[in-house]
Design a binder for these strands. Structure first.
Length: 462
RNA sequence: GGCGACAUAGCCAAGCGGUAAGGCAGAGGUCUGCAAAAUCUCCAUCUCCGGUUCAAAUCCGGAUGUCGCCUCCA
């Protein structure tokens, strides 16, 4: 299995620290608002990474942090006139709800920043003691110039930054690129006691202490959105190096950004969509398909037509299952013939190559074709469907097949439909095609698909 | 100013030196009373210009274009 490692800018053979086990950390949300469709991409990306590693037989420990104390949360608490803890609770719950609707598997651990305050203070203290951090005006900063490797991950040199980039002006800092480890509390702000007075930890410290606590000093994979590479991940790495001298993680994975109709998503452009808004309109698997149809590292452009296309594409899976009356079958009794092995091999090859989900989806469609092919034996079709479900599940599809295949239809409508079908059958028997066609139009107007097969008329909701 | 990514059919998208996967949309044949579904068939030489090579979408150089990061951000 090969993974593109941001640290080395190339695909590398994946070798876990401990054979058979993978320790994975991916940055979770700051719970100050509902998360947006771009966040959803990151969650789905690492959900698939995790699922695939498990499918490949690894025991995966997956940690996703929840940042429940941060400047934006404080700002939101002022805006909503409620304590910051209520803001955090409200949006943590929303996060967990939405992420479940997206169909992501619950991480092994979802630690909260506020549960790790003491750990963070300890880590900051360690850095001060080691001479990598300094206290200034109640704040504590990390001195980037003390760490020669600083910039290693993002490929940035401290001195290059000064030329054109805007760097926050702060008299307390020794160097403009120094970042905050501990922030002194202003009156009224939530705070914790520390050797440097009352304040709160900076964001970059929490991932270091949580990962160390739950995964160990160096773990296997650290993931997140590409924008987190700098400064967030760079600053995490710096703190790990400053305290242990060892790298934080062996592989760094970064998912690409999502744009909205070619433009960066932002509130000012009024093209900002929360995941729950999208989930209210589109099926979670259509959204998943949309993301997985492109490689996770590429930028992706979100627009309605593409989601519609994805929706149609996913329907193919379920049409195949529906045609086979999948819910009446016990898949365990279907044996996979050897001819299907090549699809498994191709699927694994695709996913082994830095999680090439777009290629993996193509294999699913080859299986759809086999499952739908009415010119072949039923058992062959069922076997293809079984494999499609198996491999699709690795990508997070088919989590709720029953709901997708069961048509919720209200009894009144059902009666009407059945009556119309009955009338139409009569008309067809009498070869009254005009009446038959008219009745079919009525059925189609009800949102149905109508097929006349050898065994009679079949209909289903679209 | 620094760093980086990308450019493949109407749209989305794989491909990473050996002659263009897949999805959506579209066209035609079979089947059907007609449809639908199914099935068969068709639909690109890879932004441009040079170079390396027996061979390039794939490597190198250049041009053009698009996008991202350097500031909170998935």
């Amino acid at each position: 299995m090969r993974i593109y490692n941001t640290m080395t800018r190339q695909k590398e053979e994946f070798v876990p620290i401990e054979p058979g086990k993978v320790k994975l950390y991916a940055c979770g949300p700051t719970v100050y608002n509902y998360f947006h469709i771009g966040n959803a991409r990151a969650f789905i990306t690492f959900d698939v990474v995790r699922r695939y590693l498990e499918y490949r037989g690894y025991e995966v420990t997956y940690v996703q942090n929840i940042t429940d104390i941060e400047d934006k949360i404080i700002a939101q608490s002022i805006k909503e006139h409620i304590p910051f803890t209520e803001v955090a609770e409200k949006y943590t719950k929303a996060f967990l709800d939405d992420v479940e609707r997206l169909g992501t598997k619950r991480p092994t651990f979802q630690p909260k920043a506020t549960e790790y305050i003491q750990h963070m203070i300890d880590l900051i203290k360690e850095q001060v003691d080691n001479g990598f951090a300094y206290e200034s005006g109640g704040d504590v900063y990390f001195a980037v110039t003390k760490l020669p490797q600083y910039g290693q991950l993002s490929g940035k040199k401290i001195d290059d930054q000064k030329a054109g980039a805007r760097v926050e002006e702060n008299e307390n800092k020794q160097h403009p690129a120094d970042f905050t480890l501990w922030k002194a509390a202003k009156p009224g702000e939530p705070s914790w006691s520390s050797p440097w007075g009352k304040g709160r930890p900076g964001w970059h410290t929490e991932c270091v202490v949580m990962s160390r606590d739950l995964l160990g000093v160096t773990f296997d994979i650290h993931g997140g959105g590409t924008d987190l590479m700098f400064p967030h991940h760079e600053n995490e790495l710096a703190q790990a190096l400053a305290t242990t001298g060892k790298p934080l993680a062996n592989y760094w994975m970064h998912n690409g950004f999502l744009n909205i109709e070619g433009e960066k998503m932002s509130k000012s452009l009024n093209n900002f969509f929360t995941a729950r808004e999208i989930l209210d309109v589109y099926d979670a698997e259509a959204i998943r398909f949309f993301f997985l149809s492109k490689h996770y590292r590429s930028p992706i452009d979100f627009n309605r037509e593409l989601i519609e296309e994805s929706k149609t594409a996913v329907q193919n899976f379920y049409t195949a299952l529906s045609d086979l009356n999948w819910l009446t079958i016990n898949p365990e009794q279907i044996e996979l013939p050897e001819q299907l092995n090549k699809y498994i091999i191709e699927f694994n090859e695709a996913m082994d190559d830095d999680f090439n989900s777009a290629r993996a989806l193509a294999i699913l469609f080859e299986l759809v074709g086999k499952a739908k092919n009415t010119t072949t034996a039923l058992l062959e079709r069922q076997a293809a469907a079984k494999l499609m479900v198996q491999l699709g599940s690795v990508l997070g599809f088919f989590q709720n097949t029953e709901a997708h295949l069961t048509q919720a239809i209200d009894p009144e409508k059902l009666k009407l439909i059945e009556a119309l079908v009955q009338q139409r059958n009569l008309a067809r028997q009498n070869k009254d095609w005009a009446a038959s066609d008219k009745l079919r139009d009525e059925l189609i107007a009800l949102g149905l698909e109508v097929k006349d097969t050898k065994d009679g008329t079949v209909w289903k909701l679209l």
